[in-house]
């Protein structure tokens, strides 16, 4: 019989398995820890910092922190909710996000996260960066205006597709997603069937000619908030 740990998240005792990351253990127990760069099946990345929790009183990201027996975690508390709001607002103002014209509206995790946290407009001034679009590929569009630098496509392309089509170039505020060619996505071996295209949380990596196949009103987060899919499905809570 395999060993299990007991950890507490906001006072709720849950089971965890050695080797699990905190966010996985929380998911299994139906406790949602907000995240954007993390996605099940991809290597933990720790970039968006939305899943920052207090582990035994110290801040750490749930997506990268391994579980340990007796761990005491604070997640849904006022100070962390405020930090998360700030991070979401920062992601909005550093890019050029126009939800009302975006084909991902309703399926977008960034937008859904803002709704979950009750954000109607960011407090910070917009930075209005200049970002490039790459429409060279017959089936795929890269719109860096909407990219939040979560690195999901980087990891999926490298680790699942085995291609390494995408990676980051530049530093700091100039950091951006790039492709494995001198200039254009069309010059890479990217394909519309790549898993990398299914993991983008926003509208930065899009399959052409698929927009609006599902009408607004019937999209993923139109009726239920992001995270509810995890909150409705927990089985490892200890009563």
């Amino acid at each position: 019989m395999s060993q299990t740990y007991t950890i507490h998240i906001d006072g709720v005792a849950i089971q965890a398995l050695p080797g699990q990351k905190l966010i996985e253990a929380a998911d299994a127990a139906g406790i949602y820890i907000p995240r954007l760069c993390h996605k099940r099946g991809l290597e933990p990345f720790g970039a968006c910092r939305l899943c920052t929790v207090l582990v035994n009183g110290r801040p750490g990201t749930a997506c990268t922190t391994p579980v340990a027996d007796g761990m005491v975690v604070e997640n849904d508390i006022e100070s962390l909710r405020e930090f998360r709001k700030q991070i979401i607002e920062m992601l909005f103002v550093e890019g050029n996000h126009f939800c009302m014209f975006c084909e991902m509206s309703g399926n977008c995790e960034l937008q859904a996260m803002a709704y979950r946290f009750g954000i109607t407009a960011p407090r910070y001034p917009y930075i209005w960066p200049h970002r490039e679009i790459d429409a060279s590929h017959p089936d795929i569009l890269i719109d860096r205006n909407r990219c939040i630098l979560c690195g999901r496509c980087v990891r999926a392309s490298r680790d699942i597709d085995g291609k390494h089509v995408y990676d980051f170039v530049g530093r700091g505020a100039h950091k951006q997603i790039a492709v494995n060619a001198a200039a254009r996505l069309a010059d890479t071996n990217a394909d519309v069937t790549d898993e990398a295209l299914n993991v983008c949380p926003v509208g930065a990596l899009l399959k052409k000619r698929t927009a609006f196949q599902v009408p607004i009103g019937r999209r993923l987060y139109d009726l239920k908030p992001i995270g509810s899919e995890i909150e409705s499905d927990g089985s490892t809570r200890i009563d």
């Binding site: 550093e94 930075i127 700091g172 505020a173 100039h174 950091k175």
Partner: peptide
């Protein structure tokens, strides 16, 4: 700090710019 942030995480990549501005 804006010039030297690596840009990996949101708080540092954006926070420094907002403070500078």
């Amino acid at each position: 700090f804006v010039d030297e942030s690596c840009g990996y995480c949101t708080p540092c990549r954006v926070g420094n710019v907002l403070l500078k501005e």
